[in-house]
Structures are given as C-alpha cells and as structure tokens.
C-alpha cells in the first residue's frame, strides 16, 4: 500500500524554486539516504529524462520519476517533493511540474503493484487536488490513509 511506502521522512516540501535536475535529485534524496536506491538509479532517472523521457509527466503538474528495477533499485520505495513553483521537465513549459514523485521497485510485480496504488489515488480528481493543496507531510499521509480506507 502507498501509505506503507510514503512515510513522513520521504515527503518533502522545497522552500526554494528548483530546476528539473535539482528536483529529481531532491525527490530521490530520501531514498538514497535510506539505501532504497543506489546513486546509479538517480543517474538513470536523469539520463532517461534528458534523453526525452518526458513520459514521466503524468499531467496536472505531477511527474513520477523512475528508472528500471535493474538500474539500482534496492528496495521498493517511494518519495514525494512539492515545489513552490514548477520545474518544467527539460525546461519545456508544456511539462510544468511542481509535484514530483520518485519511485523504485525491485521487480516488475512490485513495480506494477505500487504503480497501481499511485494511479488510483492520482486519478481521483478530489484527492489529487487535495494532495496538490497539502502543505505538510502529515497532511499528505492523512489524505493517503483516508483514501485507502474508503476503498
């Protein structure tokens, strides 16, 4: 479940504006610190975006940065970084993102299960807006928990 993955220390709010590279490195930082991913994983995410990988843009200002399990995912993990202003992917205004998620999975099955949880919550228009409006980690956790309890 998402609430098991997105723990308080993995939910960040940036006080300052960032570039997309800083945002991807920033959202990955808690996972790197916990040993959930290796530095290679961060490089793989940055490289795949630089190579045109704006597919991580989910729409509604939200992006899901991720690489493949074999790129350095140690444990299945997720983190979130909210920015005060958009850090557009590849500096393209069409990909204005101010809510970054980072995600690592150890195998295809874990990948799809966590992806499914995130898809359910982000595709719910009310919860998605509430997540965008949330101003603290406990608020985000409460939203996710409430969403999971009603399903």
């Amino acid at each position: 479940m998402l609430s098991d993955l997105l723990t308080e220390e993995r939910i960040l709010f940036s006080p300052s504006e960032l570039t997309w590279r800083e945002a991807v490195a920033g959202v990955a930082r808690p996972l790197l610190a916990a040993g959930d991913i290796t530095p290679d994983y961060v490089r793989a995410m940055l490289d795949s975006i630089a190579a045109g990988g704006t597919y991580i843009d989910l729409g509604h200002g939200i992006a899901l940065a991720h690489a493949r399990p074999e790129n350095g995912a140690v444990r299945t993990a997720m983190s979130m970084l909210r920015l005060p202003a958009p850090a557009p992917l590849l500096d393209d205004p069409l990909h204005a993102v101010d809510l970054y998620f980072c995600f690592a999975a150890v195998d295809a099955e874990a990948h799809m299960s966590a992806m499914a949880s995130l898809a359910r919550i982000l595709s719910d228009a009310g919860t998605r807006q509430a997540l965008r409006d949330a101003a603290s980690a406990p608020e985000v956790i409460k939203l996710i928990t409430q969403f999971e309890e009603t399903r």
């Binding site: 990988g53 597919y55 989910l58 899901l64 991720h66 493949r68 295809a108 990948h111 799809m112 992806m115 499914a116 995130l118 898809a119 359910r120 595709s123």
Partner: peptide
C-alpha cells in the same frame, strides 16, 4: 502503451 510497458501504460490500462 508506454515506452517500457511497466509504468504509465499500466496506469492507463487500469483506468
């Protein structure tokens, strides 16, 4: 469909 067949295509399929 997506580039890897693991991520966004699965989200879209569910929806």
């Amino acid at each position: 469909m997506c580039s890897t067949g693991l991520g966004s295509s699965f989200m879209v399929r569910m929806n």
